[in-house]
């Protein structure tokens, strides 16, 4: 009598999906470049200002000193004689912190609204989709400008203003994912053993919806940074906190006399957003199994 031999366990050990994603991400040169640039920027803004030791609002030399001429003010001075290098070193802190905090607010609002709409469907979905539509037709920057003007322009208000205008994309994405996942077998199984809606949403569906949400969160960080820069350029952020956007905005009237005071902080914003979006693209490829089979 023939004995059925149990099939041998596969010799290749199954990787966890996160490890697999990291493997794909690591082999992506552009994404790794983004990670390196971002690490350098974060290290520079963390330790640079205290190593350099010049306060960004202090007068450090004669106004309009061109860059690479005076060793004491290597990147030159602006129209008030403030050291451009000191501003560039410290100016990223506000920009990046506001960007991260605002993206957190946006993702929290977006995922909550999208999850409720996608999970419950019906009238909840209709109502929440209308709310999402409303926030989509309000031009984000103008709406944030109104919020910042009506309330005081502190960093907290700026964070919430950006967060409140930036969540709609995430909400649409989360809604689609929750709709797709809520009737899959594992969700039904969890429901059958008595899991309530909250548990189902948070413990069963959300972890499986995470990959696309993480990618979109990364992209929101990028656009929130651009947003903060835009608001401070317009002079609508906290005027007592040096940021890249504020440097460009305050030197706007004198750009023809001192190009360096706007070019360097702008380049810093550009590099930061570029790094974040390279990382976002890399995460997208890493989490999307269809793409890396090609």
């Amino acid at each position: 009598m023939a004995v059925t031999v149990p099939s041998p366990t596969p010799t290749v050990e199954a990787m966890s999906p996160w490890l697999e994603a990291w493997r794909v991400f690591r082999s992506n040169k552009a994404a790794m470049l983004g990670l390196v640039i971002l690490s350098v920027i974060v290290l520079t803004m963390s330790f640079g200002p205290s190593l350099y030791g010049v306060a960004p609002f202090d007068i450090a030399g004669a106004p309009f000193t061109p860059p690479f001429t005076e060793p004491s003010v290597w990147l030159g001075t602006d129209y008030l004689g403030r050291d451009v290098l000191a501003g560039v070193l410290v100016g990223g802190r506000a920009t990046v912190l506001v960007g991260l905090a605002a993206a957190t607010v946006a993702v929290t609002i977006g995922v909550s609204i999208g999850a409720l709409a996608g999970y419950f469907g019906g009238w909840v979905d209709t109502a929440l989709s209308r709310v999402t539509e409303l926030f989509q037709v309000l031009p984000a920057l103008l709406f944030a400008m109104v919020l910042v003007t009506l309330f005081t322009p502190s960093l907290t208000v700026v964070i919430f203003a950006i967060g409140i205008v930036a969540w709609t994309g995430t909400a649409r994405l989360a809604r689609a994912e929750f709709m797709r996942l809520r009737h899959l077998e594992y969700a039904n199984a969890a429901r059958a053993i008595g899991a309530g809606p909250l548990r189902l949403m948070l413990r069963e569906i959300l972890p499986n919806a995470l990959p696309p949400l993480i990618v979109s969160a990364t992209l929101i960080v990028g656009s929130a940074i651009l947003f903060e820069a835009g608001l401070s350029f317009l002079g609508l952020s906290d005027a007592n906190v040096m940021s890249w956007g504020l440097m460009i905005g305050s030197n706007r009237r004198n750009i023809l006399e001192c190009w360096w005071a706007v070019t360097f902080p702008g380049a810093a914003i550009f590099l930061t957003v570029l790094a974040v979006s390279l990382i976002g693209d890399g995460l997208n490829d890493a989490f999307n199994p269809k793409l890396h089979l090609r």
């Binding site: 990028g222 651009l226 820069a229 835009g230 350029f233 956007g245 460009i248 706007v262 702008g266 914003i269 550009f270 590099l271 957003v273 570029l274 979006s277 390279l278 693209d281």
Partner: peptide
């Protein structure tokens, strides 16, 4: 990529 990352006012 570059076009996306450049702040428009800059």
């Amino acid at each position: 990529l570059i076009g996306y990352a450049m702040p428009v006012f800059w």
